[in-house]
Nucleic acid binder design. Structure first.
Lengths: 138, 138
DNA sequence: TTGCGTGCAAAGGTTTTGCATGGCA
DNA sequence: TGCCATGCAAAACCTTTGCACGCAA
């Protein structure tokens, strides 16, 4: 159990290194696949998807779903404790995905657990709304 | 602006009536389409999708995205004003959708607007997590 | 050598779009 | 009558899967 840790391949290192290098940035599977194509690293779509799902299962990567047929977005999860506790904001106007770094979120999660017996999964929750830029447009 | 309110067709009434009859239940586009096929109402896929998206845009319907390739789930929004005041909780264990009635939500929305210049859309925002019942199972 | 991991291609599914026809106002 | 909405089909899209080869241990 734990982690099979079967083989240590070059592709695994490349993919893992790339998503880790993304830091807080998010990327779709297609973007990641294209990045490898452009950088010369010949990695098949299937391999990208397989490792992405593997990393999601291992808790190293977060997966969320965008609105249209744009596909799923992946984001690296820092192992630091501080970064695990932030939510995401999706602007319905421009479609941008922002990160919410705020101490209040910890209070919200605690409030939900205490008063409503509901444990919020910050990794999956996305708040929808209108960002500052789009609010002043038209 | 308000609403174009173009034509009032029979299919529109059928689709609207069906999703309203679902109440709190959620259904995928394929399920809704199949329901019409079985009940004898001949309505094309495209028409179902078009009206579903129209209803989502009008705030009458909520659209979720499921994990796999199962497609999107739609759910009827009972009353505009009632649901605008609170958020929704989606349990990842049992799939139930709960309503969160809490004054703290007003504080959250206010905090987001003041500190982060982001207006939260309560109609579309869903908090994911584990409900009380599922937490004690297994 | 053994067998997992890879890559290519094709399948699977959901959603969108073009175009001719029918129905509402 | 004019024009929108519909329906059928095909396209586009993302994602998964089968199979033969290559590479790690």
């Amino acid at each position: 159990m734990a982690r099979p840790e079967k083989y240590n391949t070059k592709q695994r290192d490349i993919i893992y290194g790339h998503v880790a290098a993304l830091g807080g940035e998010h990327a779709t599977a297609a973007q990641i696949y294209n990045h490898f194509r452009l950088t010369g690293a010949q990695i098949g779509r299937a391999t990208v998807y397989r490792h992405l799902e593997e990393l999601v299962g291992a808790g190293k990567l977060r997966k969320f779903l965008t609105d249209g047929t744009s596909g799923a977005c992946y984001q690296y999860i820092e192992s630091d404790e501080g970064c695990a506790e932030h939510l995401h904001l999706k602007c319905e106007g421009c479609g941008a995905l922002q990160h919410l770094e705020c101490d209040a979120l910890g209070d919200i999660a605690r409030h939900m657990a205490d008063k409503h017996a509901f444990v919020v999964n910050s990794l999956k929750t996305v708040l929808y709304g209108i960002c500052d830029g789009c609010m002043h447009k038209t």
